[in-house]
Design a protein around this nucleic acid. Sequence first.
DNA 1: CGCGTAATTGAATCATTTCAAATATCGTGG
DNA 2: CCACGATATTTGAAATGATTCAATTACGCG
Lengths: 254, 254
Amino acid sequence: MELCLERGVGVSEKRMVLALARVLRYIDPSAEEIAFLQSLPGPELTLSAGDIFPRSHDRDDLYLLLDGWAVNAAISADGAERIHSVHLPGDMVGMANLVLDAPSDAIYALTAVQLKQLSCSVLREMFERFHRLAAVTMLIAQEERALKHEWNLLHTATATSRFAGFLYRINERVNHLNEIAGFDRTIPLTQKQIAEAVGVTPAYINRLIQTFRANDLIKYQRSQLQVLDHESLGSLSALHEWRVEKPKWLPAPT
Amino acid sequence: MELCLERGVGVSEKRMVLALARVLRYIDPSAEEIAFLQSLPGPELTLSAGDIFPRSHDRDDLYLLLDGWAVNAAISADGAERIHSVHLPGDMVGMANLVLDAPSDAIYALTAVQLKQLSCSVLREMFERFHRLAAVTMLIAQEERALKHEWNLLHTATATSRFAGFLYRINERVNHLNEIAGFDRTIPLTQKQIAEAVGVTPAYINRLIQTFRANDLIKYQRSQLQVLDHESLGSLSALHEWRVEKPKWLPAPT
DNA sequence: CGCGTAATTGAATCATTTCAAATATCGTGG
DNA sequence: CCACGATATTTGAAATGATTCAATTACGCG
């Protein structure tokens, strides 16, 4: 039965696969590497939808998202929000704030989430002792950057293709997590949030949603979105499958 | 005299400061770290304006920009270009391509440039032996990412503030290089290139340039731009000074 | 002097915003 | 089970920033 699989060994397997999802795209981690990632020091928190990730001491906090959805949003003076990125399990969240002395963006949960709160000292240890994981961390940062570059290309295009591209990339990740760990494929975003992420007004996103719905590209109700036609979203946005390269130059595993 | 400073030791000092400019914002490198960066294996090339950076073997090439201006541009099927980023001395160029198996973007010189062509194996050595430099490399990637986030915020705003923000950030870097190494402060971009970077049409950028010129914000002629009023560009774009944090958690120097 | 590239201008068009109001939906407490 | 308030979605019409496209002008270089 379904219920059986969700207990005992099954569930902890799933948990691990989700938490490592991002790293697994680049390497097959060694036993030591897995052990390091599994036993990262720091409290494990559970938040519910809408909660803001706690900022501890010197702003140098990092989170490893273990389960659930979160977003990284900038809140401007007039209360308007802009969503920079949508985070899924396996994401290391808060890294972009490492370098700047003015925070200005907040991370909050879209659904119930589980996360591991880390401090920067784990980065130090990683760079000193787990060279390959350190390199992968840099690669993931580069991947995010490349994604932003791509997003910039979409920004000259029409809002339709931007919306399509947004959904296409998210759905890609969701599908992947679904395959490797049975992650639920519905995307939990209100229209306002979608608008903030795509970069249009809520009023206009509504019209776009209606078009997409009419063309059977998506299903949307009550802040729950489901992609029905992944391929069409890809061609609408003129994006192709996102494929990361497994680099050959990486340091040897520890 | 000026001319004296530009010869002998002076000039090689300058060269080094330029090439390390980016790293220096995060750490004071040790003698070993400097030695490593100075003696990176790989050919040193000189290109002239308009030249495309050579892509060698397996696409895994990296360049350290030693002097001059370059851009990273995506060229779409219909020949339209979009400029992702403008590169200055000290930039490690080509990193974003590390992770993707579809290149799609080219790097070309805006002025005469000097660069060091590297292969990915230097990254491996860096991650294995120079932990602090490796961490700084990741931080720079995060910095780029944060810059893109900021750019995204501007993308909802009007083209005026986007243009202002674009110039503001570039000028910031140019000023910095000018202070530490006497780098020339004129920005070598055609209107078409500015348009491709800001994300508007050349026709419209022209109108914006005229406004900016009329308000004594910039000087522009023959593809040479000079910022006259840095502060006003900042307030027009609603951006504040970009300040990177020197992190305390970094690994010890090698 | 003339050619090629870069910059400038005009007028029509369009995608998206703005703003305000109307409607739907959920969870909650009575 | 219903009414209520809060939040989320939907709609309309007017205003606008930016594009498009084609044509014109300026500039530098051989």
